[in-house]
Computed example of a mutant assay.
Amino acid sequence: MILKSLLFSICLLVILPLQAQSKPRIISLAPHLAEIVFALDAGEQLVATSEHTDFPEAAKSIRTIGNSHSLSLETIIGLEPDIVLAWRTGNPELQLQRLADLGITIFYSNPASITDLLEEISDIANLIGAKQTAQQVIKQLAQDVERLRQQYAARKPVNVFYQIWHQPLRTVGNDPWLNELLATCGGQNIFRNLAQSFPLVGYEAVLHKNPDAILIPYKETPSKRTPSKETPSKETLSNEKQSQETNHWQQWHQIDAVKKGHISQLNPDWLHRFTPRIIQGLEQLCKTLDAVREANEH
């Protein structure tokens, strides 16, 4: 009996460390990648993240090792990651190559569509050992997106100017990600045919296109109310932000969106980050455009 107990204890000492080692150590180099890892219930495997990684709350306590411009290679190497999740267009290419040359496994994220996002979630899950959770996440997200597509497919299109920045005035051109999100809700980007993803444009060009709505991505500060799925689709910008983001439109009252007050804010983290939270962004976007649609019908 004593011998059996001793053998059992020895087995535990051998097996438990092996089980712990079976979960790869992960470094995320973009907020959306850390968010995906948490969505796959693997947040405890993250040993480092990048600046601006702020969701979920637990992600804020993980050490950061750089940003989109520069990475601390020495720190990354010292953490001995099994996998580095990188953003192909959002991380320093030369530094990533140095990590790859050292034999570190790097997964490159570069989704251009919702389908790409679903595939990336699956690929990341395969790398980090979260296949079962991924199946549930992917199925739910795909169903939710399809539900919205069907709900708004027959609605009258709403012409949209999507303001990325106000000084200088920058918008969305042929960027496939944001154009797909707009189209899902029956929105049409008035500059979707421009060759650049995020071009600078003039106010006269916006006036010529005469959009029904002007959409402004704006992240609330912690002291202000954070938008949610239940938030009314047409929100009033805070006084401070309204001064910065919307006052420059008031002299262009010939534009229908300005004349009718269809200038709305959206949560950029929900729309601009490639994560399952895009469904929250789509819900907010669709409600916003539907409010404009209904107002124009009366």
Rank of each mutant, 00 (worst) to 15 (best):
M1W: 07
L6I: 06
L7F: 09
I10M: 09
L12K: 09
Q19V: 14
Q21K: 14
R25F: 02
I26T: 08
L33D: 00
V37H: 00
V37I: 14
L40S: 03
E44D: 15
L46C: 03
H52F: 14
E57T: 13
R63A: 15
H69K: 10
S70T: 14
S72G: 06
L73H: 06
T75V: 09
T75C: 06
I77Y: 10
E80L: 14
E80Y: 07
L94M: 04
G103C: 09
T105A: 11
I114M: 09
T115D: 10
L118E: 05
L118I: 10
E120C: 03
A125S: 11
I128Q: 02
G129L: 07
Q136E: 05
I138C: 11
E146P: 01
V160C: 08
Q163I: 04
I164G: 04
W165L: 11
P168C: 13
R170H: 06
L178E: 02
G186A: 10
G186I: 03
Q188M: 05
A195M: 07
Q196N: 07
G202F: 03
K219G: 03
S223E: 07
R225G: 07
S238Q: 14
S238Y: 15
H248Q: 10
Q251I: 15
W252Q: 13
Q254A: 14
Q254W: 15
Q254V: 15
I255M: 12
A257R: 04
R273T: 03
E283K: 08
E283V: 13
D290M: 05
E294F: 15
